[in-house]
Computed example of a mutant assay.
Amino acid sequence: MDINTHENIDRSLCGEPISVSEGSSEVRLTCTGNMSADGSGLIHGGFIFGMADYAAMLSVNHPNVVLAGAESRFLKPSRVGDILTAKAQEQEKDGRKHIVKVDVSCDGETVFSGTFTCFVTKEHVLAGA
């Protein structure tokens, strides 16, 4: 399936799409030193959240999809060198509103879980701005 959203995203920071299909996606991210929050190599949660958000956007795969809200839980720490996989699955669709569940794992263990509320706007959110 063609990717129709977030075409300019930096995939080195948000992940590389592995699969994209209607209502689902999979994204892989290698955690690098520039994502580290401290000298121990702990990955800042913002990068993991960004990856999960990107996976949610890809599962909707519309040029005007935006994030309206999220409930998320960080379950385990990630470190420099970890390879993370985000799997997104649409749970509900009501008109322009999409509810997407995203789980991020490393070596088979879930490190992050979230539910993302996405909307497809009638026009780009920056149109006319």
Rank of each mutant, 00 (worst) to 15 (best):
N61Q: 08
H62E: 14
P63W: 06
N64K: 09
N64W: 05
N64H: 10
L67W: 07
A68E: 11
A68W: 02
G69H: 12
G69W: 12
A70G: 06
R73Q: 08
R73S: 08
R73D: 06
F74Q: 09
F74H: 12
F74E: 06
L75I: 07
L75C: 02
K76G: 03
K76L: 15
P77T: 08
S78R: 06
S78L: 05
S78Y: 07
R79L: 13
R79Q: 13
G81C: 09
G81S: 08
D82N: 11
I83L: 12
I83V: 15
L84S: 01
A86C: 09
A86I: 02
A88D: 04
Q89R: 15
Q89E: 14
Q91M: 14
E92D: 09
E92R: 12
K93F: 03
K93Y: 01
K97W: 05
K97P: 00
H98M: 02
V100D: 11
K101L: 10
K101W: 00
V102W: 13
V104M: 04
V104C: 03
V104D: 06
D107A: 14
E109F: 01
T110F: 02
V111W: 07
V111H: 07
F112G: 03
S113W: 01
S113A: 06
T115K: 13
T115Q: 14
F116W: 13
F119R: 07
F119G: 07
V120P: 02
T121G: 00
T121R: 06
K122E: 15
